[in-house]
Design a protein around this nucleic acid. Sequence first.
DNA 1: CCCACATTCTCAATCATTGAGAAGACGGTG
DNA 2: CACCGTCTTCTCAATGATTGAGAATGTGGG
Lengths: 246, 246
Amino acid sequence: MLSRVVRIVEAFGPGDTALSVTEIARRSGLHVATASRIVEELTNFGWLQRHEDRQVRIGVKMWEAVSRASPTLRLREAAMPVMEDLHTIVGQHIQLGVMEGDDVLFVERLTAPRAVINYTRVAGRLPLHASSSGLLLLAYAPSDHQERIISGPLEAFTERTIRTPSQLRSALAEVRLQGHALLAGHIHADVTGVAVPIRDPGDRVVAALAVIAPNDDVARSRVAVLLAASKAISRAMTYPASPPFK
Amino acid sequence: MLSRVVRIVEAFGPGDTALSVTEIARRSGLHVATASRIVEELTNFGWLQRHEDRQVRIGVKMWEAVSRASPTLRLREAAMPVMEDLHTIVGQHIQLGVMEGDDVLFVERLTAPRAVINYTRVAGRLPLHASSSGLLLLAYAPSDHQERIISGPLEAFTERTIRTPSQLRSALAEVRLQGHALLAGHIHADVTGVAVPIRDPGDRVVAALAVIAPNDDVARSRVAVLLAASKAISRAMTYPASPPFK
DNA sequence: CCCACATTCTCAATCATTGAGAAGACGGTG
DNA sequence: CACCGTCTTCTCAATGATTGAGAATGTGGG
């Protein structure tokens, strides 16, 4: 059955590059015999691969199939050159996120080796109410989605994380007023995030571009260059897709 | 059955971001009813997603699961900062490839907007004998693999593409002698590629780092900076993996 | 309005999947 | 070297999900 394949692949959580069959069975709730058999079949297709010690990893074939037809390909291709320029200019972490359920999902990021701690990863998530990217995306989301988050539990990361519905409501209003989201110390006490919207040709907000910097960085002055970058990405997305290759 | 899922997902070729159910059925050789049903099930898991016009794309959930446990994650994380620096310095396309079957599979790339045409994409492939990255990887591959490629058909892209076993054999010897691969006009008449090896802690060649530039670029002078970059990446990979996050 | 095409639904025969338990492989330890 | 615990794979009969032809429904264009 199909759900078992999904459960097996999704058993790999953030930070798990390799798992044993037993561990996969435990996490997915499948019988080990079932897990073993499906893992073997997927391995034959190259969708999973096995280490010499029988540990299981995601296979190159699956990565390839998914990556070449990735749902965010257009966005990432349009964004990457601009993100690089931005990265060179501001010298801090740059990240690109989209809304996915009640989280922001980061689809691309550039790290600054000596810069501040940053918990995000490519394909990592953060709650919408807690991160600058998430708050920005939520501010431009349909109101029923906003209301669901506002009325839901608001997990706190630090003492400055938004934790009440009224705080969140006014924060969203402020984001819409200013056109960007600036959050200091909401995820980690020493870290400030600034996020701006990226719009598709129909002017809908489809992604957030953010700079993650230490609190004492001149974060506020980064808004202008961030906005310029987001305009450039929005413009690049309006052009037709790039030509096929091999 | 499991193979049907694989066939459906792998129906998405390079350049296909969205397909119709009928097209998926045609490419995968499945009955449309079967394709329709499996597509619907995968959609419920978020592994596929449907456009308003019923077109099918890869879903965010599948992208997320695969990307966060990607088999080349370590390599890419180690390589990206260095690739960016390199990109800033040389101002040409930079790409990172691994050997996968009889092709080189590109796992990361940085493009130079105004630079030369480049047919590669992330998750794109090129034959081992034709590209600088491929030739480099083949030169350090087990000899049985080399022999299989040497004796196999050698597809030609331009008149300068290697097309005979003896040409390939001597090209491989030269790569091993020099420690890098420089190919001018083998994929496209006006384009030169230069590739150098990236080694894992056990000193095995696991990837190729390449610069793609116009023929009149001073490609030869790029070898030194490329080698420096590859050493930096190799070194970065020896450190333990980065800590988990959310 | 009708036609062509794409998609989904229906349903009975089929055949792959399941999972308990056994057997085998592996690795560490006394 | 033999023992033991753990992980993995195998066996096999009962089960029930999967399959695909064809019908029905939905969709868009002329």
